Simulated scan of single mutants.
Amino acid sequence: MRIPVIDFHCDVLSKMRENVGISFLDDPKLDVTYDRMRQGEVQLQCFAIYLSERWGIPRYEYILDQIDAFKSRVMTTAEGMRWLRWKEDAAELEQAIQGSVQALKSARQLPWGLLSVEGADGFEGSLFYVKMCYELGVRFLGITWNYANWAADGVLEKRNGGFTEKGRKLIQLSNEIGLLLDVSHLSQAGFWELTERTVRPFIASHSNAKSICPHPRNLTDEQIRAIIAMDGRIGMTFVPWFVREGGEGPVRPEELLPHIEHFCTLGGENNLMIGSDFDGIDSWIQGLEHPGRYPEFAELLCKHYSEELVRKWFSGNALSYLNSHLPEKGAC
């Protein structure tokens, strides 16, 4: 079954920064490639800008390197891709999705890319750098990776602190300019502080349900309910150890079903989307190793849920969020 897909998280760009010889077209070193996006009907891929700990002290130039890789090596691939930044872009994408999945295969309808930053570390504490990245087309910001930075504590920071004073100014700036925030790596204390300070609903781009798999990066029921209450979004992720505790042995796509069912039981059928974390993992769900496997995953889900629901989770819920919260053109 071929259903259009929006994926809210992959780590292609950090791999491309580390290896300038990687081709986005079809390089086997990547999970997400242009060819596999086409194969899996991925109409929009969100590319995260991640600064690896291997690179030493985080620097702003590492963010700019990856924006450049996105513009010069991803957007120019094969027939090309389109850069989604505005409400009118999302509206055009929605028309293609609602029209026909075959539109993606047409030379007239190219897939789209979207930029996020995973962890504010590389902004070096500068709100000016944050604003500049927004003006360069970044639309989502994951405030932390797993540990503390200048803005807040990450989910693995033992002290479980919230936001710093400068981090609170980051929230205020993001609210003002329309930079959308992502809590997938944020501490519990930071999560709850953000619910009080944000004026825009946030997302958890790549997290599953902690009640099903008790990994620190997964969301508690209380967090899930809070995201649902604000009409935010949660990206179901394919990290094996976020699906089954330990993630040892072959993890299969069927093991995502309890997470989906749990989100729905809590009222989240209109809030669930996909955040694969492809290229950010070194082991994979058997049968979901890359975007080309989405049609098989859709067939599996349609054995348990209506096609209407599966379409929501694959693209509809993400689209409605983008249509509501992306800026109008020229708003930068």
Rank of each mutant, 00 (worst) to 15 (best):
F47G: 03
L141M: 12
G142P: 00
F314I: 06
H215K: 04
V251Q: 01
L104K: 05
E53M: 09
H259P: 03
E269H: 09
F140A: 07
E61T: 11
S306E: 09
F24R: 08
G125L: 07
S306K: 08
H215C: 03
L44Y: 03
L30Y: 04
K169D: 14
W55M: 11
R2H: 15
D121A: 13
E296P: 02
N175E: 14
R54Q: 14
T164N: 03
K105H: 15
L266P: 07
G275M: 05
L93I: 04
N317P: 02
L170F: 05
G190C: 05
S276G: 06
L110K: 15
M37R: 00
Y147N: 14
P258R: 07
A148W: 11
L194R: 06
K87I: 13
R108I: 02
Q172F: 10
T265D: 15
W86S: 12
A107W: 09
A318W: 03
E296V: 04
S100T: 12
A204W: 09
G330D: 02
E222H: 11
I6C: 00
R2D: 13
D31F: 01
W55P: 08
L170A: 02
I171L: 14
N317M: 00
G292Y: 02
T76Y: 08
I224F: 10
L256M: 06
F70Q: 06
L179A: 09
M75Q: 13
N271H: 15
S106H: 06
V42P: 02
L266M: 08
Q39N: 07
C133G: 01
Q223S: 08
G235R: 10
Q102P: 00
R200S: 12
N317D: 02
E328D: 14
L180Q: 12
N19S: 13
S315T: 08
T164Y: 09
L179G: 08
A148S: 14
E135V: 06
E41L: 11
E296K: 11
G292P: 01
S211P: 07
G190P: 01
D26F: 00
H206T: 02
R82W: 11
Y134N: 09
C264Q: 13
L173E: 01
Y321H: 08
E92L: 15
S14H: 12
Y321Q: 08
Q45A: 07
T198K: 07
G137M: 07
L115R: 00
